[in-house]
Structures are given as C-alpha cells and as structure tokens.
Design a binder for these strands. Structure first.
Lengths: 153, 153
DNA sequence: GTTAATATCTGCATTGAAGCAGATAATGAA
DNA sequence: TTCATTATCTGCTTCAATGCAGATATTAAC
C-alpha cells in the first residue's frame, strides 16, 4: 500500500485495518456458531452459487476430497445443507444450502449487515457506483491471489 | 443488502462475492503458511498495533488466556514474534512482531497486495477518497458487529 | 505487611479437522 | 463387455488448537 501518490497514502492508513476487521469478523462469526472458519466459508460459497458438487467444494476450500466429505457431513448434520444426487452424473453429489433452517447463521451475520447497510446508505449513487466497481474488481483479484498462493506450495 | 434504492442493488450483486473472496484469501493464506487462521489474524493485529499484551491478544482473538499463551508460543517458535516483559507492569508480556524475519508472511500476502494496488491505481483521487471513507467506517462497523456477536453467546 | 486482584503460564485432557489410502460406484472409451 | 477414469465415501491415524483448572508472579488495596 506504499505509494508516491498522496491520495493512495490515505488507503495505506485505513485499508489494512479494514481487512483485519473483515478477517476478524469471519473468525468471530465461526466461533459464535461453533463451527470452523472453513465450514463457514463453504456456507458462504454455497449461498452464492446455490449448489456446488463435493469436488468443487474441495477445490474451493483447498481440502482433499475426503476432508470435504466430512465437511459436508458436518454441515448436513446441522441441517444447513442437503446432499442431492446429480441426475446428470450419479457419481456426483450436489450440495445445496437449506433455506429456512439457517436461522442461526443469518442471525450471526445480521449485525454486520445492519451496520454496513447504514454505511452504504450514506453514500450517494455516484459514490455507490465507485464502491460497487471496487468490489466487483477486488473479488477476482483476491481469488487470483489465492490461486497464486496455492501454486507456490 | 436488500434495498429499495436501485443504486444499492448493485452492491447486493457484488458485495457478498467480495466478502467471500476476502475470507477465502485469509484462509488460503493461513493454509499456505501452515498456520491457523487465528494465528494469522493475530499477526495482522500485531502488525497494525506494533505490540499487544498477551491479554489484549486474548480479547481480540476471543481465546482464553491459556490458549493465547500457546498461540504466542507458536508464533514465537516460528520467529514471527518476540516476547518482551512490560517494564511498567512486570506481570504483563508484550508481544511484538519481529520485522525482518517475516519474509514468508510478506511473500504470502504480496499477490493480493500487488493485485489490489493495480486496482487502486486505476481510481482518481476523488474516487480514492470515497473508498478510503468506506474503509475507515467499515472497519469499526465490523468490529462492532464482532462484539455484538460475541455478546450473544 | 497481609490480603486480594490481576496477568500469564503449565499440565492435562478433549475435540475436531485433516490427510492418506483403499473401497465403492458411476461414467466413458475401446 | 472390459478396462480405465472420475467422484465420492470410509476407516484409520495424526496433529493441532483449545479449554479448564490450578500454579506462579506481580501489583494494588487496606
């Protein structure tokens, strides 16, 4: 975050703290729910994608397929997730989030959601567009960084 | 992220994916370094604060003091951290990051840093100001959410 | 100076996450 | 059909992270 551009220096002040807070929030949420951070991440991925195969979950989490089976077991036992056999290829198992049951998960995430909504509401449309642009580009940037990190093992 | 304001709808599309990517990045980084997510978070907190007492680390991580002692042990054994007795109160142990040693940690974080710098560089000063404002306010929002989540146990 | 409170550490035990290797089942190719 | 490949699961084992309760050392209060 070091830069010769003075406007970027402002980011150097606030951005690391912001990232740290996001990470902490993820950890604390997992703690509060009594699950591991990986399990919580998997739930997030499922919420975004709707359904993922066991293998896709393994790739995303960076776990072996065996460990992923156990991860799905844990989520299933909590009623957060359901296994569905893929009709296209019956070797595959589709995992999908169970909607109405995830009350505790929603509850755990709601304080952050509420606080963030208040912040977003204070920006005007042009500013929201800037933020949305940033989020849209930062997400793949982080994912690319993950791939790069994983390659270097 | 539901909202009647149409400009906020754009955030609902991108923001959850963004957060998920950030969380994934934290997990993958910890995996790559062969440490737990909590340990990595602690390193981040130390990088930001310079030094923290063992007790402060316990509060931040949400661990018991005993578990925090072990966390510090792990970081110390890796040479990432140093224990310093607080001269003001010799019961306390100050923990501080060891600078030049954390090469692997820096290396693991550098892909994300590089990618993000490229993104930030594409915004003009006004836009950077918007982003900086968001980061500055979102960080305490997340921390407040963490406290709220923890209270509800 | 004695007692209480605070900060950290230690021993012990538990639990859970994960890897690995082999088993099972389904698909695809020859 | 037969063989190879792919996707998931299971049994077994290991290791790390954590909690808890008690020990120690330091400070603060009376």
């Amino acid at each position: 975050m070091e830069s010769s551009r003075p406007d970027l220096a402002a980011l150097g002040e606030v951005y690391p703290r912001y990232l740290n807070a996001v990470v902490l929030h993820g950890l604390a949420t997992a703690q509060a729910l009594g699950m591991g951070p990986t399990d919580l991440y998997a739930m997030g991925a499922l919420a975004l994608e709707g359904r993922l195969t066991s293998g896709e979950l393994a790739v995303r989490t960076g776990l072996t397929t065996g460990a992923t089976t156990r991860l799905i077991d844990r989520l299933e036992q909590r009623g957060l997730v359901r296994r569905v056999l893929d009709p296209e290829d019956r070797r595959r198992v589709l995992v999908e989030a169970v909607e109405s049951d995830g009350v505790d998960l929603d509850a755990a995430l709601s304080p952050a959601r509420r606080n963030l909504e208040a912040i977003f509401a204070s920006f005007d449309p042009d500013q929201i567009a800037v933020l949305a642009d940033y989020f849209a580009r930062a997400a793949p940037a982080f994912r690319a960084a993950v791939e790069e990190i994983r390659k270097g093992e």
